[in-house]
Design a binder for these strands. Sequence first.
DNA 1: ATTATTGTTGGTAG
DNA 2: TCTACCAACAATAA
Length: 268
Amino acid sequence: MPELPEVELARAELARWLEGARIVGASSDDRIVLRCSPRTFASRLTGRRVRAVDRKGKWLRVMLDDGTRLFSHLGMTGDWIAQRDPVRFERATLEIARGRRRTNLRYADARRLGRLVVSSEDIAAWSALGPDPLAEGIDVDRLSEKLARRKKRSIKEALMDQSVLAGVGNIQATEALWHARIDPRSRACALSRADLRAVARGIRWTIARTLADLRKGSERWQDSDVNPFVVYGRKGEPCPRCKTPLSRVMLGGRTTTFCAGCQRRAGA
DNA sequence: ATTATTGTTGGTAG
DNA sequence: TCTACCAACAATAA
């Protein structure tokens, strides 16, 4: 379910339910998603008050009043749902109380590629994340410095590297590079300063666009049959800009759609 | 039966 | 120590 925009939506939803509320129960017995002992999960969370729900890239961090942190990554199919009754593919549950009001927050994850970790400190996966494009913006100088060391990687693979920019995944990278008119197969180190400024604009554009879609639709696009993206998943359809049929290649094992007509190979 | 999928990571090689 | 590559993880849908 998640790249940066979806996770940001999940953060806002969680914050609305959790901030200032008290966790009065926590349980999970999923030995794949849960990366700490079920006992730790229950005992460290129960009774605590929630200070804040933060997001960095695709990671969520719930900060509690005693410094304990709950980290949540949604993997490919994870989602938090505020609902009294159990949901399909439920892997963990938080019972929360705010005054007299009680709610259950349920973590659902069909493929179980997501993870939940309770820790008293920030975990390595969180600390290793690069800047978040939505929260911190994109510093082209810093980006250029990092990409200069990627001699072999394509720009698309580099953008999906979470230590380069946190939160950009297959869809957002595909859309951003189309907007920037850069061929996704270009070597990351071959992009000029102007190219990188265009990529930064492309990322801001696609994130803002996806976020706006999610906020107004509230229905996740996977659940409807409408593809809201400009090029992702549209191989063979005419490019919205130049009408050339869109091509598809594999980069780093991920499907990549692009326009051979108007996305130029950098450095070539 | 086959192929695809919004993601990460651990092992290996260089 | 850093970069690069790929299989593995796991479950569903078309």
